[in-house]
Design a binder for these strands. Structure first.
Lengths: 212, 212
DNA sequence: GTCTATAGCCCGATAGAC
DNA sequence: GTCTATCGGGCTATAGAC
């Protein structure tokens, strides 16, 4: 792997673990086994590094936002859930430390409102597909509130378990527990068969697919 | 007001606005119209200031956790909601910046798991009181998941609207919108009368009661 | 491309006059 | 109790040898 990519990936891991502000360039260089000056050959400022990560984040989100419900709306909904949770974990610090960038906020902050709104719309479309398929009984005009609540539950799932003092790394099961619990939002309105299929599909998500 | 209290209160406001890490002692002193050195007469370290705020936070939470459902479970539930949202707003930075204290994390971090667990229990008790009163139709063994989801929706309500780029200050209506939307979690299982009463009780919460 | 060395800055914290 | 002045340290960033 090119040095530049090693730096970006190493920074992402360290930022996710310790927070953007808490990771000094010295610590990052030490973690990568290179001199601090070398960092500045590849990225002139710490902010430039953050911006590259922000671009990769944007690319991942745009790709995820393209996921539409297909012929099997239940399977495609589960696939969307998997992609969202992987995205939350992969770019965790960008979600979590948004308030802490200080003046750097615009990297993510400017586009976040649009991303969130489109995420609501995406979840709403997938839930609407379940309604259309006769698997979910939910009034159309209340779907948006359901989608927003689901987004919040999923989006803050990892941080919730962190606050509870539980490990949130790979294999900790927190993602799967978040996904299971989010079903409580609308399980009562699912057909019995759909509820069963959703539960087992969520349980079948591979740990590897949720890795950081 | 005593200088010491002025410092604590001014720090709370600035931390809430800009984040703990982003507020320098120089900025705090300037905000309070006093010299930086005077700050250190009252609090020898920035951390000591944080710890005092942490104690006030703990006191507020303990008081809120004592609120139990009474003869009118619906009114006491709304009262609990009001207290929780006021608490979230008043000590917002302590909730929001938890990941960013660095080594200071234990001020809140150590007790947060217990507080959260007790909050789940408290919400569950209030919801159970609604079930007992025949106002809510919800299976007893699923109440905990409902309480957890509600806690997450309420707890992260302000941050959610901040990410959406909306103002979250007093009078912005974000708290009330969060409270209204959280009803979506269980509104379908409320009696029509209970749903109506909850909606109007939430709408009747005074802005002043939600102030920072 | 990678290293060493160091400049420059801002921060939390201290000392001591008043 | 409040001020002015200043220190030491850690951080980002730069310069220049290899």
């Amino acid at each position: 792997m090119k040095t530049r990519d090693r730096i970006v990936e190493g920074a992402r891991l360290l930022f996710n673990e310790q927070g953007y502000g808490a990771v000094t360039t010295a610590a990052l260089a030490a973690h990568l086994g290179m001199a601090e000056g070398n960092l500045w050959y590849h990225f002139k400022t710490k902010r430039a590094l953050l911006e590259v990560l922000g671009e990769r984040f944007a690319a991942a989100i745009d790709q995820r936002l393209d996921m539409r419900p297909d012929a099997d709306p239940l399977a495609s909904y589960v696939e969307l859930l998997r992609a969202m949770m992987a995205e939350f974990r992969r770019f965790r610090f960008l979600y979590r430390d948004q308030a802490g960038y200080g003046e750097h906020a615009d990297v993510v902050g400017k586009r976040a409102p649009e991303w969130l709104q489109r995420t609501f719309g995406q979840l709403e479309a997938h839930l609407a597909a379940l309604v259309d398929a006769g698997l979910l009984d939910w009034p159309r005009q209340r779907l948006r509130d359901l989608a927003i609540n689901a987004t919040i539950i999923l989006r803050y799932g990892l941080e919730h378990y962190r606050e509870l003092g539980e490990p949130t790394g790979e294999g900790s099961g927190t993602v799967r527990r978040t996904l299971r619990r989010h079903l409580t939002l609308f399980e009562h309105a699912l057909t019995g068969d759909a509820a069963l299929r959703l539960h087992s599909a969520i349980d079948a998500i591979e740990d590897a697919a949720l890795a950081a």
